[in-house]
């Protein structure tokens, strides 16, 4: 019997637990020529802000060991253009659409949420309070429990659709932020956003990113992501979405065994555009071979002690 991969995030039912991470999958159709996007559990769009944003100065990406730094700065078309032009191509897709949103004030979060969540094709919002590459909002909000609670509460008031809050690892205690987000009304949490990082060219003695520091992603951050997930699983009872360096189905299963309900693949798309589908297939095969009929039976099934 084929394994049941269906998972729930609040009221939202996903056909499988594999999603795309914001900022790595554009507006959802850019990779359509490479694989059938409808096979995914869901797509999370690029961050949408109230006004269009050009993003940060160049250079804004750099490769590091088993990872990459980015300081894109939430470049996007803005909420109005997103609704007018980017949602229509998503209509025929048989997959959940989650729109990642950000603002430079709680007020702006509320405004963009109000605009975006009202659209029928939008199944859920992911609230980005963890971008390390902007001066206002982003990381500055997601490192403070009070502001986190306030931002989430304001967005919560705009919609009954599932609300996912995306957390930063760049804090002393991620569980304090996780609890604040749940108190604010989050239905689910996604973690982690990128890890603050830096790299320097020793010839020119310049940082590789124009904005000096940026967000590290890729396989290099997976152990950090797992540890943050491990801490958060014990602190809150809402579903958690694991993110951070997931490149293979084995990586995804680690997150699920620690307690993730779903996972997001991000930097993977740049390396292998079809990688997310390979993760879904790999999880299926693993479950079939182990006689697992329902994926949820292994969620959070990690045993004590070392391997």
């Amino acid at each position: 019997m084929a394994v049941d991969l269906q998972v729930r995030l609040g009221s939202l039912v996903l056909k499988n637990p594999v999603l795309t991470a914001s900022g790595t999958f554009g507006y959802g159709v850019e990779y359509a020529g490479y694989f059938d996007v409808s096979r995914l559990g869901g797509i999370v769009t690029k961050t949408i802000t109230l006004e269009p944003r050009e993003g940060n100065p160049m250079p804004r990406t750099a490769e590091t060991f088993a990872g990459m730094l980015n300081s894109i700065g939430l470049a996007n078309v803005g909420a109005d253009c997103f609704i007018k032009e980017k949602l229509l191509p998503l209509e025929p897709l048989d997959t959940a659409v989650m729109v990642n949103i950000a603002g430079s004030s709680p007020d702006e979060y509320e405004k963009v949420a109000l605009k975006v969540a009202a659209h029928e094709r939008v199944d859920a919002l992911e609230v980005n309070i963890s971008c390390p590459n902007v001066n206002k909002g982003g990381l500055a909000f997601g490192t403070d429990p009070e502001i986190t609670r306030e931002v989430v509460r304001r967005v919560r008031e705009t919609t009954v659709k599932p609300l996912i809050v995306k957390l930063t690892p760049n804090v002393t205690d991620i569980t304090a932020i996780a609890q604040a987000a749940v108190e604010g009304g989050a239905d689910a949490l996604s973690l982690i956003n990128t890890v603050l990082g830096m790299a320097v060219d020793i010839e020119t003695r310049r940082p590789l990113l124009a904005r000096h520091v940026g967000g590290l992603s890729g396989p290099a951050i997976k152990p950090i992501a797992l540890a943050k997930l491990y801490q958060t699983v014990r602190a809150v009872s809402v579903p958690l979405i694991g993110i951070g360096g997931i490149m293979t189905w084995q990586d995804a299963l680690e997150f699920i065994i620690v307690g993730a309900t779903a996972v997001q693949a991000g930097t993977l798309h740049f390396v292998d555009p079809c990688g997310a589908v390979k993760i879904i297939e790999g999880i299926k095969t693993y479950c079939d071979e182990k006689g697992i009929g329902d994926l949820s039976s292994i969620r959070g099934s990690m045993e004590d002690g070392g391997a």
Binding site: G23, T24, F25, G26, E30, Y31, K46, E54, G55, M58, P59, R60, T61, A62, E63, M68, N70, I72, A75, T267, H269, F270, P273
Partner: peptide, 22 residues
Amino acid sequence: EEKMACGVGVCMGCAVRVGQKI
């Protein structure tokens, strides 16, 4: 020529100003 991550327009890493637009 520019350093690239995705190569297909999703990561927004290889921006350049052309005319008035990014």
